[in-house]
Amino acid sequence: MKKIIAVIALIVISAFLFGGVVEMRNQDGGGFGNPVETEMDEYFLENSQDHNQVNNVVTAVLFDYRGLDTLGEATVLFSAVSGVLTVLRKTISSKEGEE
């Protein structure tokens, strides 16, 4: 019973996602390889050399236009390391883990 409902739910979700990806940019007549005209990316491409004197636009986006995302990403890595160190540290009960 549960399995059948799960499969039905999966089918519904996949139908919605398929519909979404087909529908996504339909009004422009293009799908993959022909994205919608985005002012944002054109702005980045045109101005990254002006603002940041940098050749790699992706780096400019990473560290200037969306710098806070990168800080958050580094924070994610930092918290994952803290989590791993916390979880895998020597437990009080078991003595064989030595470090």
Partner: peptide
């Protein structure tokens, strides 16, 4: 089962909104 309920609710909400 946790994921199951999540997925089922997702499907329900999508259909509901649609």
């Amino acid at each position: 089962d946790y994921v199951y309920w999540f997925v089922v609710t997702l499907a329900f909400v999508l259909v509901f909104l649609y």
